[in-house]
């Protein structure tokens, strides 16, 4: 049975900028096919400027000029029906947000009101999404939710600045999951945090997922976090997904040259053998090389790499790679 809850089909989202008479197109998301399953944690990994944050904007239907979806579509499956996001009205989008799909940003300060106690933020939030309930009921709901997630209740009386960064981020996650959304999208939710706190936040995300049996799409550049939490990982490079596989496969048997470099360059404890970076620099999304965008940095580059972007090759179940080295790219579909 098809268990896909969030699907993108040949999605293209470009920024169209006009700077003092010079127009430029930033191809941030280019022909991305994703099929994200219910009850999984899907990691999207990539370097800064690879378009991963833009992809998330498209996933949560928050595309605003100068960003435009120029091709393909994003579909949600709501109650067994496929819904094309572009057909939704702003009103419908707002209704879906938080109850169906929720978003956790990198910084929690944009979510929490700095001059209101956490208690009040919770109350406003519940009232605006569940209608005006009585204060006591709203509060009871918030309390239950925090207790479920193992957060101390005394934080309700605190102002955001009185909490540590890690606690604020956990409060944000608690707030985002209050309405039990089917999809939770995290944009580098642990990046600004210390490692011990990061572990606590990841622990919370895992717990939320186990409890709600929902889907988490997690974008982070930190491969260590992916290794610890993700079920499947999509590797993004220059606006495209270049490899997708189960986490063990990505770390154990990466097939795309970029992924291979990325994984082998990660330092490991107890292993001091010299490691190499990926040569060169990532391309600008406004000025992509022709063919496979990785070809200028790839040690295995062939003539056709410069001419044509390879399609996906299914090298085994749930492992697809876009590289001429691996195959002719005849199985283009997301799994």
């Amino acid at each position: 049975m098809d268990n896909t809850i969030l699907r993108t089909t040949a999605l293209q989202a470009f920024y169209q900028l006009d700077l003092y008479g010079k127009s430029k197109v930033v191809k941030a998301v280019n022909e991305v096919d994703l099929a994200i399953q219910a009850d999984e944690i899907y990691g999207i990994a990539g370097e800064s400027g690879c378009g991963k944050s833009t992809l998330l904007k498209a996933l949560v239907a928050a595309v605003e000029p100068p960003l435009r979806v120029v091709g393909g579509k994003v579909t949600y499956r709501i109650d067994g029906k496929e819904v094309d996001v572009s057909t939704l009205s702003p009103e419908q989008k707002r209704a879906l947000r938080l109850s169906y799909i929720a978003y956790v940003p990198q910084g929690s300060m944009s979510v929490l009101n700095p001059v209101a106690r956490i208690r009040d933020t919770y109350r406003d939030f519940i009232e605006s999404h569940l209608g005006r309930q009585r204060h006591q009921e709203a509060f009871a709901l918030a309390q239950d939710h925090l207790t479920d997630l193992g957060l101390p209740l005394k934080i309700l009386d605190a102002y955001p600045h009185q909490l540590s960064g890690g606690m604020r981020q956990r409060v944000t996650i608690a707030l985002a999951t209050l309405l039990k959304p089917r999809i939770l999208i995290g944009d580098e939710p642990t990046t600004a945090l210390d490692v011990v706190v990061q572990r606590g936040v990841v622990q919370l995300l895992k717990e939320v997922q186990a409890r709600l049996k929902n889907t988490i799409v997690l974008v982070t550049h930190d491969m260590g976090v992916h290794a610890n939490i993700a079920d499947r990982i999509g590797i993004m490079y220059a606006g495209r997904i270049v490899e997708e596989a189960a986490t063990e496969k990505i770390f154990g048997a990466p097939a795309h040259p970029y992924t291979q470099y990325l994984i082998s360059s990660l330092p490991k404890f107890g292993d001091k053998t010299p490691r190499e970076s990926v040569p060169g620099s990532p391309p600008s999304l406004a000025n992509l090389p022709g063919g496979c965008p990785f070809h200028p940095r790839c040690p295995h580059v062939q003539t056709r790499c410069k001419e044509k972007m390879p399609g996906f090759t299914q090298i085994e179940k749930n492992h697809r790679v876009a590289c001429w080295l691996v195959g002719e790219g005849e199985h283009g579909q997301a799994a």
Partner: peptide
């Protein structure tokens, strides 16, 4: 122990 190791055999 809190460092996320990029190795699926060493999960937290």
């Amino acid at each position: 122990a809190s460092i996320p190791e990029a190795d699926t055999t060493h999960r937290w």
